[in-house]
């Protein structure tokens, strides 16, 4: 169970981003692949706890679970894996380890509420 430390990293990064952009955060959007080794449910639970006492307290974690996409050399195309227990092309059955998506553990976006425009926003 390393989701608590992952949640803390997410919050640290989001707090930094919020301070840099001078905004408040209502929600953090996360892309999560099944091969990231992180369990969505445990992460949601950890996020709530880890947010307490930070400027993100009360914010939501919106997780978009990404599917595993592989490259099939036989079909010469990108395919969506049907099962993590079977790394084969769903159409032709050719085995493949060429993973294109599925390892994501990425903050994709921040949902911001009020923007504090009292001070100039630093260039990004």
């Amino acid at each position: 169970m390393h989701e608590l430390s992952i949640a803390m990293s997410i919050i640290d990064m989001a707090v930094d981003e919020a301070e840099r952009r001078r905004v408040t955060i209502d929600a953090v959007h996360l892309e999560l692949g099944p091969l990231s080794g992180v369990v969505a449910e445990a992460l949601r639970f950890s996020y709530e706890i880890a947010c307490k006492g930070t400027s993100l307290e009360g914010s939501r974690l919106v997780i978009r679970e990404v599917q595993i996409e592989v490259y099939c050399p036989t079909c010469n195309a990108q395919k969506t894996l049907r099962s993590m227990q079977w790394f084969c092309c769903p159409d032709c059955g050719a085995p493949t380890s060429d993973i294109i998506h599925g390892r994501e553990l990425v903050i994709s976006a921040l949902e911001v509420g009020d923007e504090r425009r009292t001070a100039p926003v630093g260039s990004t």
Partner: peptide, 18 residues
Amino acid sequence: MSAEPRLLEVRKNVLKQN
């Protein structure tokens, strides 16, 4: 001041530090 919630694109790998 805008009260409308909006999305800021970020794209940051959570394990980037590691």
